[in-house]
Design a protein around this nucleic acid. Structure first.
Lengths: 214, 214
DNA sequence: TGGTTACCAGAATATTTGTTCTAAATACTA
DNA sequence: TAGTATTTAGAACAAATATTCTGGTAACCA
């Protein structure tokens, strides 16, 4: 996956694959590529495709027709739209209630582009209700895009249900030895420390916060 | 293109094509379809594909490998994508610098869906630098989507250059008689009052605030 | 009942398409 | 300069893939 420099021809090929795929919904064949960039020999195209694959720009599937596609990183994340179901509201006094978001029919959706939420995984959206989450720099009416998970890494922001306080909060999560530090996004606010991990229930990982203004 | 009713098998095929295409970036072959839905004969798959094409659900390209794709109408026609150029940074100590955003080649873009920013008009994005805009509930690293304008209505949020303070700020704008009230998004903060309108230069209207978390 | 239509199966065939091999031209390096 | 790696070309080959043909079953309808 060494990002080697590409020859002009390889760049041209890469560009063509992208354009062709976008336009046709399916990848080009070796011969189609050759024709487009002016290479008569399929072996030369094949050679350059191998180079591109080696450099990590594309992914090939052996012996398969049209078995070439742009690598995740290369792919223009533009056109790709991700539809996220709005699962409900989030506010301090209630735990995040999320049914099975795979359930087909939420009555509302938000369309995002892949570039906004790179991570794959099961996503859902919550509307913020009330201004009890000011410390998270999140206000009434904001929309939070969440990823369904019950585990986060240090430094990631999560929706957390604090069992002892009966409160949902959005905080940066830090496991520090046996103690958990929950850090507000607002740097002027003090963190919460929790010694008993059982009191911290992670309800999801916050991927994106949005505020739409009229 | 008569939307005929589909046999269960045809529905299954349609569904498979959709799922497969989504997953692999390329359409399935006839054999792959057959295997997936439990048809041993390629001719039967071919037969059903013809039916689907006839009914307008898919489009086929003759004699081409993987020459089947969902018709435009069948395909998930998710939202329109809007490409917004990243014009630079915004921080308190400097006025918003925006060249001609129509200029073709910004080196960076953000793709949004139309649903996120309903308003038309010339949009650009700014990255927030530093945490001097906490009062606007906007923090370091956030992205602000702006609309190019020098006028806003009451209650709208704007990027404002305060000439007397030499400071850029994001505030809700209210014209109250001869006085202008600039209200921070954070309800616990006090507004700024400006009596001299010349001291308030509106640099753009804030359409959307986004915070991406790892 | 007979006939028509929709649907299916298996196999053979034709075409497309990826792979491999040999050879040569070009660029790069010691 | 000699030598090595990169890139290109052409052709033959092998595999994947769409197409076509023959025939069969089941449902439906007059």
């Amino acid at each position: 996956m060494a990002k080697a420099k590409l020859s002009p021809r390889q760049q041209e090929i890469l560009k063509f694959i992208s354009r062709f795929s976008e336009e046709h919904q399916y990848p080009p064949t070796i011969r189609e590529i050759g024709e487009a960039v002016g290479i008569s020999s399929t072996s030369v195209v094949n050679y350059n495709l191998d180079k591109l694959a080696e450099a990590g720009y594309i992914v090939r599937t052996k012996r398969m027709s049209r078995g070439v596609r742009l690598a995740e990183a290369t792919r223009n994340s533009a056109g790709e739209v991700v539809r996220v179901p709005v699962a409900g509201f989030i506010f301090a006094s209630n735990p995040v209630m999320v049914g099975d978001t795979a359930q087909t029919d939420a009555d509302e959706y938000i369309d995002l582009t892949r570039g906004l939420v790179k991570d794959s995984g099961e996503l859902y959206a919550l509307r913020v209700k009330g201004d009890s989450m000011i410390d998270a720099m999140v206000n009434d009416g904001d929309i939070v895009i969440m990823k369904k998970t019950d585990r986060v890494h240090n430094g990631e922001m999560a929706a957390i249900w604090l069992t002892d306080r009966n409160e949902t909060t959005l905080k940066y999560f830090y496991q520090e030895g046996n103690r958990i530090r929950l850090q507000p996004a607002n740097p002027s606010m003090e963190p919460i420390y929790v010694d008993n991990p059982a009191q911290v229930q992670i309800q999801g990982k916050v991927m994106l916060v949005m505020r739409q203004l009229s």
